[in-house]
Design a protein around this nucleic acid. Structure first.
Length: 321
DNA sequence: CATCAGGGCCCTG
DNA sequence: CAGGGCCCTGAT
């Protein structure tokens, strides 16, 4: 077991967000699998970050309301960090500058969005990790059940990551891509990564050789990001589908429906057993246009928030735990 | 027990 | 452009 690094608090500051901002629905996505690099409690969120080659602990606290958002950020680290450089990155990660007013105006009375908007107005997608880390997550999602995904990621954290303690929480942090580049494939296979061992090694070397420029990709159009992402070994259409929306904030990027999601949309939107992916895509694009993926996000997360408080029998069957 | 299909992707033919 | 193979795990 690696030793736990204690990170002292460096500073705290207030973050400004556009309004409305829903703290809990933005920080916490109930449809996502749990990962030891972050903890959410109502009004509070802790996450680790590897920033300029050192491990940093972030705590975000809700100090405002949906209409008048105020977020207190505290930064924990062993060494000083450059605040002027860090803060814009935090703003991007938590998507604090986006303007969704048109979306709410257009769809507040929509049959499917009325309820989710009422409950979750101010919810946004967040790219809580760096691109390399996000892609690791997408790779362990591929062809695996939730339990197995969690096991693979936690095995990676235990072997290559760093455990840190700050603000009374113990969390894992990601590793530098260079670290995995040099690891023999068999070592990764021993962590039950299976054929993903090769994928993760190649991904790590593509990043450590500096072949992928996340900051440039943030400025690209949707199609450019897609093209760029598909060049990455092990990243295909299903991973890109998540990437475009959750990490690059393209609210219209709704092009693929994975089989398990297809079953859930069929029941939820059509009350049918199975509607073709093409029809779902066509209908959603027609109805929501450039907001299609954001609309789906509201519908989807609303369902998983409900699942937290009450059992939904038909849904349990579709989630492969 | 054996078999098989996944919350995909790459590679081959 | 279709389909086989890949690591593992849980379902049957």
């Amino acid at each position: 077991m690696p030793k736990i690094l204690k990170l002292p608090k460096l500073f705290s500051t207030m973050l400004v967000s556009t309004s409305p901002f829903n703290f809990d629905a933005t920080m916490h996505k109930p449809s996502h699998f749990p990962s030891s690099d972050n903890i959410w409690e109502k009004g509070r969120y802790w996450i680790t970050m590897v920033w300029q080659r050192q491990t940093v602990g972030l705590k975000l606290e809700n100090k405002g309301t949906v209409a008048r958002p105020k977020i207190e950020l505290s930064v924990h680290s062993l060494k000083p960090v450059n605040k002027e450089e860090l803060l814009p990155e935090i703003e991007w990660r938590f998507n604090l500058k986006t303007d969704l007013s048109e979306f709410y105006r257009k769809f507040k009375d929509d049959k499917y969005l009325k309820e989710p908007i009422k409950k979750w107005k101010g919810m946004r997608p967040v790219a809580a990790n760096f691109l390399y880390e996000t892609l690791i997550i997408y790779i362990v999602l591929q062809n695996a059940t939730v339990r197995r995904t969690v096991q693979m990621l936690e095995n990676l954290f235990d072997s290559f990551g760093q455990k840190v303690e700050f603000d009374g929480k113990i969390l894992s942090a990601f590793w530098d891509a260079k670290k995995l580049d040099k690891i023999p494939e068999q070592k990764l296979r021993d962590l039950k990564l299976g054929y993903r061992a090769k994928t993760i090694k190649k991904l790590s070397s593509q990043f450590s050789e500096g072949k992928i420029y996340e900051l440039t990709m943030r400025k690209m159009t949707k199609d450019e990001v897609r093209k760029e992402a598909l060049k990455i070994y092990g990243i295909g259409p299903a991973s890109v589908e998540y990437l475009l929306f959750e990490d690059f904030y393209h609210y219209d990027a709704f092009d693929t429906v994975p089989p398990w999601e297809q079953k859930i949309y069929s029941k939820l939107l059509y009350n049918k057993k199975l509607v073709s992916a093409d029809k779902i895509l066509r209908d959603m694009h027609k109805r929501y246009g450039k907001w299609s993926k954001l609309a789906i996000h509201y519908i989807w997360e609303d369902l998983f928030w409900k699942r937290k408080t009450r059992r939904i029998d038909w849904l349990e069957k579709e989630i492969r735990l």
